[in-house]
Nucleic acid binder design. Structure first.
Lengths: 194, 194
DNA sequence: TTGTACCGAATGAACGTTCAATTAGAAGAT
DNA sequence: ATCTTCTAATTGAACGTTCATTCGGTACAA
């Protein structure tokens, strides 16, 4: 078995968390491995025990964060509810995940707009594809949405929500739950059939 | 007068354009000054004649690009048209600017999600604020939009459009003008009064 | 003669990564 | 229980490279 990859005392996790936290304030080029090591209370060499390189660390962090996002978004999903109810639940979950995990939001946005995403389009969270993407595919196939190019739906929905969450965080303000429901309504009114 | 900032034979502009182009493929940390100099056919030292540092170069590039965006978005704006017509014109202009200036789109997205934007929130294009922001303020004040928090409108609108444009570029596909009109309709249906 | 534009080799700091050495702990033997 | 052995985990100083920036110098225009 891969005993050497088991991360017995949580140092791997500590490195991932420290990287996430430092990346937000200083960006990728402003976050040296030495600083990650210090923040994670780990020697520089230890990072290379768990990750092949700084690039590999970033890629694994991306999958790590997106896995957590997928779990959060689909939390409490109930197939007996109407599709609209399920949609609102997912959207609210997603929004809350972002504002409760600011570092994750900023990192995900940095990542998708970075050369990493372009150079490694095959890297993604299997969990996210299986759960979240599938949910929207279901909505498209069962015609809950307007008849627009299905490839346009995901970015349209995501863009609005991320923009709102990002705005809230960057402006250090708080929107009420009703404000957010209103935003989700904007999305829903925009894309729903009819 | 600032004769030393006049850029007699276009080297300043060349540096800005080269930076924009290189940043897209390699990101900030992957784009050394030496490479920018080579790409712009300029000596490394020359860059420092026009820009105080690499950071200053990025900041000035941001304003430069956003100025061009502002001009493009408001092109052909006609105050005699209905607000909806003007809105569609702006949105279409913005979308077209993005897909005709991929480097600019990627850079702007990279920038707003980078520590630069957080550390220099005061830096922006005066032209953009005066023209584009004003146009949306007008729409809010005259109640063309739903009664949602006005601070939520801009990110909501922008997010959708940028996401669609970014998606088109990242997937190397082409949406027809009708497809885009449809996206703008999604936005309009979402935010318009009633 | 003075100052601006420009050059590109040189500089020094910072960085990602390596590696020889040390520790920790588990498994096996006595 | 105790000792032995083996391997994974960890350390941090050292290495070689790369990079942003500097600076002494040239060319040219006013």
């Amino acid at each position: 078995m891969n005993v050497q990859l088991e991360d017995t005392c949580g140092k791997r996790e500590a490195v991932l968390n420290s990287t996430l936290s430092l990346l937000r304030k200083h960006g990728f080029h402003g976050t040296p491995m030495s600083q990650i090591a210090k923040h994670a209370s780990v020697a520089a060499g230890t990072i290379y025990h768990y990750f092949e390189s700084k690039d590999a660390l970033i890629l694994e962090l991306y999958v790590h964060v997106k896995n957590k996002l997928a779990l959060a978004v689909m939390a409490g999903d109930d197939e007996h509810q109407t599709y609209k109810e399920r949609f609102f639940n997912c959207m609210l979950n997603q929004y809350n995940f972002y504002i409760e995990n600011e570092d994750s939001l900023v990192f995900l946005e940095q990542y998708v707009n970075s050369p990493y995403a372009n150079q490694h389009p095959e890297i993604d969270s299997q969990l996210f594809v299986d759960k979240v993407i599938s949910f929207f595919k279901y909505g498209i196939e069962n015609a809950y949405f307007k008849n627009i190019d299905s490839r346009l739906l995901a970015p349209t929905i995501k863009g609005t929500l991320v923009a709102a969450a990002y705005f809230q965080l960057s402006q250090h303000m708080v929107f009420s739950k009703d404000d957010i429901i209103e935003v989700i309504n904007v999305i829903w009114d925009g894309i729903k059939k009819q």
